[in-house]
Design a protein around this nucleic acid. Sequence first.
DNA 1: AACACGTGGGA
DNA 2: TTCCCAAGTGT
Length: 388
Amino acid sequence: MEDSALPVAAAPARRAKRAAPAPTVTPAPAHLAAVRGPLLGWYDRNKRDLPWRRTKDPYAIWLSEVMLQQTQVSTVIPYWERFLTRFPTALALAAAPLDDVLAGWKGLGYYSRARNLHRAAQEVVSRFGGRLPATAEELLTLPGFGRYTAGAVASIAFGEEAPLVDGNVARVLSRLFEVEGLPGDREREATLWHLATALVKGERPGDFNQALMEHGATVCRPESPLCLLCPVRDACLAFRKGRVDELPPAKVRATPKKLTLALAVWPHAGTLLFARRADAGLFGGLWELPAAEVDEDLPAPEAATRLAAALGTEVKLEGALGTVKRQLTHRDLTLRLLRVSGPQRPTRTPAFQELRWCTPDEASALGMSTAMQRALDTALASGVLRGG
DNA sequence: AACACGTGGGA
DNA sequence: TTCCCAAGTGT
């Protein structure tokens, strides 16, 4: 292909009312063909052998897509297999208690995914007779299905020519078609979806979408992309212009906010007190050592008073058991372990959905965040249950 | 339309 | 150690 046939034509300049955003890009058919075929062929030869690529079960594929949201493949694999054994069908998932579902999700993060998955399974049963609908449009009406997941399930499980754009695809298309703009930019998103829509039309849409993502994950990587191995290098505008390293621009990240929680470590007869968090927000619906948000350097006695208020009962501070720190994407989390006791053991309070006294064994079966798991491990290591 | 929402791995 | 992320969705 000659340079004169440069495979992108800028659309007629859009009359932007305010800003002057990046022009919308209309891919020429020749450019589409120069990407589509080679990428699909490359995928056939180089795709990784991932467990969800061995099934045609829409439910299993759906599950993989939800677990893969913002989560790396290697992390997901064991979760996917375990979860599928425990909840083999949408019907089984819909019938399971949410607590069990959250326990199956324990440690995976972004727990609202599990909650939405569970709700969606129930809707699949009530609205669609237990079978996942086959179009992106219908899938989009279910909880936890955004534009990406709807396109992924529709194309991979049902063969619909439905586009998808995830982080990988955004990066690949930004480079191939020299799409400008920062992540999150409206115009940029529209252009990427426009390109993805044009590209996916044709044979094997599900495989093509996966090829796009696989290529982004393994070759067209964020750092040090392997352009020498790239099957679509000749069609890549960023490569031609030496702009691979500057596309797409890195996203700006907000500095994490500090969050300090005082945790009640309340031993009694071989058990500790646990509480279930509110459904919304951080670690929603998960179990924890009863927690109260406190100022960073609130003295322990006052922190214990906060816990007493949250538990709705008198509490005696027996000592501090140390601190656990966790870095979340948007939170700088500090967990302060306070050993407490009290004249009456609470069983229900307004601050928590539910309270429960559990042995370490029973606690291990609860849906709990990794952060809280670390705090619990620290508490147990201190010997609270051995009278130490 | 920003912002909230987790985690483990790699540089 | 510290930083950056990786197959997004909901509000």
